[in-house]
Nucleic acid binder design. Structure first.
Lengths: 223, 223
DNA sequence: CTCCTCATGGGCAGAACTACCCATCGAAGT
DNA sequence: ACTTCGATGGGTAGTTCTGCCCATGAGGAG
């Protein structure tokens, strides 16, 4: 018995570009087995929406404001493991894929995929299996689970989740005061986090911190 | 007599991500006045297709393989001026907009726009007028008919050579004092250059300045 | 010749960052 | 039970940045 004929897969679209969300929605709604239950444009609201409405699958972009796709995926899979995450990304670097899968993503596609493939990935992931786009050439065992010494893994190896969150906001040009207000802590705490980050990374300027964040996928190069 | 009721606007979609093209196609085909006559995924084939099939409008992404959107736009408007180009970009920096308009683009939208806006831009541009997304804060919206003066408008240079040099060093994490020493001027002069750069670009933090420099190829993302 | 831009530089004030010092509290691990 | 680590926050100092004010001189455009 095929349950997809009875119960549609409830999907949340998370991408910071409205027209991308609209396009994905238009494409996916052709599929009778899929129902778009919401759209979000940044990490924080994605996590909030997921907690509140418990979609079956979140289609997640990596670069989003407030909280990037990696952190958002981590939080979702930590706190509501029934919600599956499919990553739709421009980056096909092995380290990036590994990072996302480690964060709990169940699927990974590049943005240059066909809509059929995305629909397939959604249904596969909803069925509690993994879907990694074959063109990525990922060896699951080798690349994902035995990759603790990946060079491009610095941020996750050295920084705490809080520090990564602070780093992202620093790299977006926010001041300590602004970050403190957003995170409901004192500016002093943000200064402390920044100092820790710089000490761990042996970096001593905002400019280099920003470049590091970009290299690690913690922030986007976009404005 | 409104010709759009008789003759549909023939549109070519140029974007290197298949799923983005599919999404745009699905969205635009709802509009009865628009007909998608082709899709291309890189600059060279976009120019070739445009020459061969003479679409009314090309919806162009900036980042594409082989030949980027700027070069492709330049070639199209140079060789087949009847073909209008609408840029759909992630970048809304004035510098970038100016670059595209100089290359001959007639429309400029950020990717985070509504599909209605894209459809509107296409019809406006097809009618031989300009459509610059209002959120870009570009002034000549009302002056669409003095099209020949566009290049003069964008002619005000954004950064001087000296300012680019200073920007590069700022984006490498150097302090004003260090930059001043290297360039054999006073730190005060560097402060002044930095202030000018920020004013021109409407940027107010080192982090965003660094990102701008990376986008413009003024600095490398590497350490 | 006059106006403008570019590059140069000074002063000042306030904000922000960087780097130290110090501390408490809870959670996780040995 | 003890230690370590993460997160929180305060104090102080010096540096750096950001944004204003001001100016001069060179060189190009009209």
């Amino acid at each position: 018995m095929n349950l997809t004929h009875i119960k549609r897969i409830r999907v949340l679209l998370a991408d910071d570009h409205q027209i991308v969300r609209e396009g994905l929605k238009a494409l996916l709604e052709r599929d009778k087995g899929i129902e778009i239950v919401g759209e979000t444009a940044d990490g924080v609201s994605t996590v909030r929406f997921a907690k509140k409405y418990l979609p079956d699958v979140v289609v997640m972009d990596i670069t989003m404001p407030n909280l990037n796709g990696i952190e958002a995926t981590q939080q979702i899979t930590d706190e509501i493991p029934d919600v599956r995450v499919v990553v739709l990304s421009m980056y096909l670097d092995k380290h990036f894929v590994a990072k996302m899968l480690r964060a709990g993503a169940r699927g990974y596609l590049r943005k240059d995929c066909a809509s059929e493939e995305l629909a397939k990935a959604i249904s596969v992931v909803a069925a509690n299996r993994f879907y990694i786009s074959p063109e990525l050439g990922i060896d699951f065992q080798k690349d994902v689970f035995v990759a603790s010494e990946i060079p491009n893994f610095v941020a996750f190896a050295l920084l705490t989740p809080k520090e990564r969150e602070v780093l992202q906001l620093i790299a977006e040009g926010k001041t300590s005061k602004e970050i403190a207000f957003r995170l409901n802590v004192s500016a002093k705490t943000i200064d402390k986090h920044r100092a820790h980050i710089m000490e761990k990374l042996d970096i001593h300027s905002i400019a280099e911190l920003t470049k590091f964040a970009i290299r690690e996928g913690i922030t986007s190069i976009e404005k």
